[in-house]
Amino acid sequence: MPNQLNNALTLFFSLLVEAIPFLLLGVTFSSILLLFVNEQRLVAAMPRNPLLGALAGSLVGFLFPVCECGNVPVARRLLMQQAPASVAVGFLLAAPTINPIVIWATWTAFRDQPEIVVLRVLFSLIIATLIGWVFSVQKDLRPLLQPSLTRLMPEPQPQLAMAGGVSSPLLRSGTYLMQGSGQIVSLEATATYGLPLPNPVKKPWSAKLRLLLENIIQEFRELGAILVLGSAIAAFVQVAIPREVVLSLGQGPVTSIVAMMVLAWVVSICSTVDSFFALSFASTFTSGSLLAFLVFGPMIDLKNISLLLTVFKPRAILYLFGLAAQLTFVLTLLINLYLG
């Protein structure tokens, strides 16, 4: 029993020591993004077409090399910046995988199986784009988001709120501002629009640095505490469930995928290093199941469910989880049956 406790603690600290540098990298990138990148412009540049928006959101990860510990705060801020649901959800699901550091790490691990690298990127893109597309049907995401976040979000733009209703926003009651480009913005919307982030570009450097520091500490505190709780749960489950039980499921084309998805969910390993973890199963598990691990793990696992709860209500996480799990399962099963 002392041994079990010891193992759990070693696992716990090993997960933390491994994840904290990436978390720091994540919150630092996210804070730099907050202060030095004009998110409004980035969000404005995103295509409004739901499918293209989801694809673009999925690819934005390339600009922000953060793993799943770091992408949640970025996605949260994209939502606050009124990014369309398709963009934010696409980013949330794909960013941990579709970024240069992760692709490079996967390539290092699977040099002799380049198809794993290519398919990991491809499947993550397909799944994130599809789910982003699905979420775009919900024009106003706020019922799915945590109240603490929606309080900081501006009212939905009139034209979004009026889906199926009157075509011109000017026909609604209220006060409107005519912008230079001919855009019409509700005065209620401007009252809050962008308020969380007054245009950062105009601040002096010292103020920027101060805010950067504040933000790093604030996000590290919040996400770090949640990471601690998640790692504690992950360590406990890993010690409590004999890995043999998990592994014994891993031979057939279907059971191996299910086993690896469960393992991905339980182990909660950071996407930047999960390909090395998967590598140690490469000879006993089907290629499809390894892919399932690499595609599904970064999207949703035990650790980042607690992070996701800072953005979404449980119901929305259940949708994300269900869709991601099913799509991963179907795509990787195709690999097992037709390419394996």
């Binding site: 949260r76 801020r77 606050m80 945590q146 603490s148 976040l149 900081l152 308020l195 969380p196 101060r210 805010l211 504040e214 933000n215 604030q218 919040e222 505490a225 949640i226 607690s306 709860l309 800072t310």
Partner: peptide, 9 residues
């Protein structure tokens, strides 16, 4: 610095 106080904990 703190307008976005979106804390779970």
């Amino acid at each position: 610095a703190n307008p976005r106080h979106f804390t779970l904990l």
